[in-house]
Design a protein around this nucleic acid. Structure first.
Lengths: 251, 251
DNA sequence: ATCTGGCATGTAGCATGCTGCATGTCAACG
DNA sequence: CGTTGACATGCAGCATGCTACATGCCAGAT
């Protein structure tokens, strides 16, 4: 299990004197991160019942930060509390994946168009750096690292779109899809493909071409959505519902 | 102050035996609602420092549910914790209003178009009922009631658009703007105006005309955004930044 | 064999004690 | 009069005790 990742506290009460391991300031945030990873890695399985008690014991912290962490995850829809029984990791159904990508299309395409109108050499350079990092991560089959740089690439562009709220909403949407079980598909190929899709986006931004940027972004997000949708349906052992696929393309 | 709104607990520890007052199941949720209202009514003012300690005493509950409530509000961006100092109600700057309405345009207009294609007599009837209730509330100058029905009207339409995630995201965006101080503008007129703007939306939906529905929704949301933006700038005593106004119309 | 009721077990939720820390205050010192 | 530094105050954050409740299990009754 993922025990003892969080620093040990003193025998009795009192603030933990160990400096923050993650750079995260509070125990609660560290627990959130641990649980996120545990879900992503499959240590915490959807559908199963868990309890704050046991989790706290495994993580070597008291129940309070665990409880607060789970409450926040519950609010994000990753988990559901059941009164007097425990909490359950929610299963990501394909429907939800489709919905998230529908929203990302609605938000990120216009944002990218706006950002393209404000092409800035520094921005382009930063995005190029992230794209290179993505390719490197794809080569190493390092999915977590790939996801980080993918996210950074998109955030750079969105931030240039100058709507902070939009950036945070899209960030939450990404979080919602990052909790799929570990992807065991032929990621090696898929990662490289996805990285390649970012090239036309960057080119269009560099040229200050809003239309082209929008088109490139649309096709990239739609494609990513299809990949994840296929993966999710495969995990659940069902076929992808046509209306879910349509939802992604209904923009 | 808003003390003693939450049921009194027993002298020492133990679960509060009083049945839930609000219909809300947990104390935490009741506190959230109390604080929401207090912010909206001006009892809790932006910029001021408050503490979980004092708030818990005023509400007659222990610190835990208050803390949890404030953490959730902090995550929603309504409040910010400052280490070892307390928490602060955040001021809604005009910029944020503009951003929220920009997002609502990006999301609600397409959603309304989709929903219009699935016009359903029951839906139209339900929306008409909400619209009537809005007009009645506007007549009574009952802003909270008006807001409830306004929200219900939009949610009916969005739900018909068949993207649950979109409904919840838009709901969060609404929450983010509902924390403006009590509006003391000539609401009486503004409320009636806003209600009237819903009529063309309803008509277009009834006709199953996606284009018209989208246009009506766009102009309604843009107008509402302008109103709130003007109100926010008036509160802060500054003029509305042109780029904020542009943001709303940049869709 | 089937039903039933009480009890053991484990849980969420709330109350409360405790600690380190940020800040304000004020006295002693330059 | 300005500076500094020890102390008082009040805070968030964590640990932990306690209660009501949901559920499973098993003994005893039918």
């Amino acid at each position: 299990m993922f025990g003892a990742r969080v620093p040990r506290h003193r025998s009795s009460s009192g603030r933990c004197p160990v400096l923050a391991v993650d750079g995260a300031s509070s125990l609660t945030e560290q627990v959130i991160e641990s649980v996120r990873e545990a879900i992503h890695s499959g240590e915490l399985r959807p559908g199963e019942l868990y309890s704050v008690y046991r989790l706290a014991a495994q993580l070597n912290v008291s129940r309070t930060p665990v409880r607060e962490a789970m409450l926040r995850l519950a609010e994000a829809g990753m988990v559901r509390f059941e009164r007097s029984r425990g909490f359950r990791v929610l299963r990501r159904d394909p429907r939800e994946i489709a919905e998230v990508f529908h929203l990302r299309l609605l938000l990120e395409v216009p944002a990218a168009r706006i950002a393209a109108g404000r092409a800035d050499p520094a921005l382009v350079e930063a995005m190029r750096a992230e794209l290179d990092a993505m390719r490197a991560a794809a080569g190493d089959h390092d999915e977590p690292r790939f996801m980080r740089h993918d996210r950074a690439f998109h955030e750079l562009l969105l931030t240039a779109g100058a709507n902070r709220k939009l950036v945070s909403v899209v960030g939450n949407l990404r979080d919602a899809t990052m909790t799929l079980g570990a992807s065991t598909l032929d990621r090696s190929r898929a990662l490289a493909d996805i990285a390649a899709e970012h090239e036309p986006i960057l080119t269009a931004v560099e040229a200050g071409d809003a239309d082209a940027t929008g088109r490139a972004m649309r096709s990239h997000i739609a494609h990513t959505g299809e990949l994840l949708l296929a993966q999710a349906t495969a995990e659940n052992g069902v076929a992808a519902a046509p209306e879910d696929v349509d939802l992604i393309h209904s923009t």
